[in-house]
Amino acid sequence: MKLMKSYGIFCSRSARFLFFLTAVWLLVQQDLLLAFWHRNFMLPTCGILAVIEISADHWIFGGTCAKGAQGMDYLMSSARGKRVLGYALKGDCLMRLLMDIVVLGGGAVLAAAHGAADPAGILLDTAGMIAATYGVVTLTLVISRHWTMLGYSLSAASAGCMTLMGLLLLQGYFPWIGLLSAVLCVPITLLAVKRVLDRMEAGFHDGMEF
């Protein structure tokens, strides 16, 4: 509850509109493709999802790791600032994971339910895609949050998208990559949260140490 409350405050109305509405649109698009379901149809959906998630982050946590940790003084002046920011960052990870599950997993579940061949394989395959999408996006955010300019965030989104495409194509040949992605999601999540909190902590310590 605390995670979502804090995240809800950091995520502005415009970011929510961009984030959720386009995600719904993607879900509809994916459902339309269900009749011809094949793993390769999911690749553009994963790519667009990654671009949306990385771009939307610019309006939520963009610049929080930038030099001088701009915009942190208000949070730093409160005894609860670091905790609230931590909750918001964890809420963001949870929200993105949920969205990946809904958008990518929803279609796979429907496909399996409608008698697609090898339903267990489809679900397993999709789980790997979800893990890879979440992992690559989260890792890209660790980098893109160092920039304050939208252009840089969009470049990061393109780079993240291409990395994800490559990873998913490889995953088609080496299914264990999906499992590896799932395992790596935990340290990547911890890194994404810790990086922003560390930058905030560093903001308390300007100048030279005694």
Partner: peptide, 10 residues
Amino acid sequence: GSGLYFLPQW
């Protein structure tokens, strides 16, 4: 504080 007080996207 200074200009670094609020996040610009807030």
